[in-house]
């Protein structure tokens, strides 16, 4: 069964790189680049995994995550958060909001793919 990954990110080149990597793994990739209506998009696609950028135009990734955790449908959705900011506080707050994995840019492709595989495997387990 094809797994769907939703990527919310506003840098076109980073979107292209991640899309390339995930498609090659056989996953289906949907993308969205605005923070303002991100929650609605997630609820529409209900992906198996969400990759979420922290600094988005319109709304921050952290707020989006907090909203998602309040919805029944996305309470346990695996979320991989990416950030280019250097704050250690960001990681603490993301963890408190219920992030599944937190990674700082730039990342190694190998690491990202590994993290995604782990997260998808966890949810796949009954």
């Amino acid at each position: 069964m094809t797994r769907t990954v939703l990527l919310i990110e506003d840098e076109p080149n980073i979107i292209e790189a991640i899309r390339f990597l995930l498609t090659r793994e056989g996953w289906q990739v949907e993308t969205h680049s605005n923070g303002a209506d991100a929650v609605e998009t997630v609820l529409k696609f209900l992906p198996d995994l969400l990759i979420l950028d922290l600094m988005l135009p319109g709304r921050s990734g952290l707020e989006i995550l907090q909203d998602l955790r309040d919805h029944g449908a996305t309470r346990s959705l695996p979320v991989l958060m990416l950030t280019a900011r250097g704050h250690s506080r960001d990681r603490e707050m993301a963890e408190r909001a219920g992030v599944s994995r937190f990674m700082t840019k730039p990342f190694s492709n190998h690491e990202v793919l590994g993290a995604i595989r782990d997260l998808l495997a966890e949810t796949h387990r009954p």
Partner: peptide, 15 residues
Amino acid sequence: VSHELRTPMTSIRAF
């Protein structure tokens, strides 16, 4: 500054 530096570096490293 960190954000502005890391964003292009992410693309460079990934590609």
